[in-house]
Design a protein around this nucleic acid. Structure first.
Lengths: 187, 187
DNA sequence: AAAGCTTTTTGATAATTGTCAAAAAAAGGG
DNA sequence: CCCTTTTTTTGACAATTATCAAAAAGCTTT
């Protein structure tokens, strides 16, 4: 739980009262590799903070899995579309390793927004940051070649190769497994 | 200004007091085609609401302009990265037509957040919605072929062809102008 | 260590898209 | 309305990536 508050601190420093309220509403969760936080068709009612481990979000297209993102330690995780709209998720979130997580439900979070303006501010700021990160990823995907995107991913997430199978990395990069293999073979 | 409040209403209904506070802080702005809301290198201090007209955001890469987004009536517009971080913008926002806009500065908005919890909530909700829209665009860009992306754009924004030159549309789609021309020639 | 399964690599070929150059079409200015 | 400039289209060719098929390498389980 300390890690969660350290992480939050980076965005917006909360008062002791707000921290306490959060602490009362977050629940620890330990899950094994391969488990799912959310599967498509179900409504995602939880926001997660990933304390330790790795996971990925993917969608199913023509029977194939397309990985949209990877999540590693110290990030907030959810199926954002489903969590925000409370409509069935199109996305699956699967653990790539055993994970330690903290979770809070949308109802609890909404109550905290009413009770503590500063918690809503914190979340507003987190959305701002997540928005511009997504924007960067979007520009990166559109502008760079597959080779550059791969190099960028390795640079940004050096240990990803040890934690994620190549087939998932290739679908994240928007290329076939064969193409990724060939890119890697010529460094 | 009515349009602005109608738009806001879709996200979160404000009290009369909050609406009044917003009305006092938004300023009308009428600009001619070709003008810029923000140019790269400058810090973006304003959030805009586009009441009428069309504009685009683009970055410069190797001397070429790459259009990242188009903005049409009834959307909030800014160089989000710069507005959020208050660092120099990498993005240019240029008017494709004469526009009617409303603007509010980051300082004013921040003051309103302190004074009216519900205004911060409104903005939090707007960020949520903008986040998932960006997510959709990202998945769309990664998953669809250029032809499908073009068809999708036309379907989503039918009048775009009359309002935006093809060269800008092609760079938005992440393809060359020649490729777009060939896609269009075979419907 | 062998068998069975999954993941990754390699080869051959096809489809898609980019680049360069030039022509055609459209838009803008006097 | 003509001239200039910009935008769009067309052609030829090269580069990139996808697809299909099969081999190789890596894991797991027995």
């Amino acid at each position: 739980m300390k890690l969660l508050f350290d992480h939050i601190e980076q965005y917006y420093p909360l008062s002791a009262a707000a921290r306490e309220a959060l602490a009362e509403n977050f629940e620890e969760l330990v899950l094994a590799k391969g488990k799912f936080l959310i599967t498509e068709g179900r409504v995602c009612k939880q926001l997660y903070f990933l304390q330790q481990g790795a996971l990925r979000g993917y969608i199913t297209v023509d029977g194939k899995e397309v990985t949209n993102w990877f999540g590693f330690e110290e990030h907030f995780i959810t199926s954002f579309h489903s969590f925000i709209t409370q409509q069935p998720s199109v996305e699956n979130i699967q653990l790539l390793e055993g994970c330690i997580l903290w979770r809070i439900s949308k109802e609890q979070l909404t109550r905290l927004f009413d009770a503590h303006h500063e918690i809503e501010r914190l979340v507003r700021i987190i959305y701002e940051r997540y928005y511009i990160r997504l924007e960067e990823r979007y520009v990166n995907a559109q502008l760079r070649t597959a080779t550059e995107r791969y190099a960028h991913l390795i640079e940004e997430t050096p240990h990803i190769l040890e934690r994620v199978p190549l087939g998932q990395i290739s679908s994240y990069l928007g290329i076939s497994a064969e193409t990724l293999s060939r890119i890697r073979s010529r460094f």
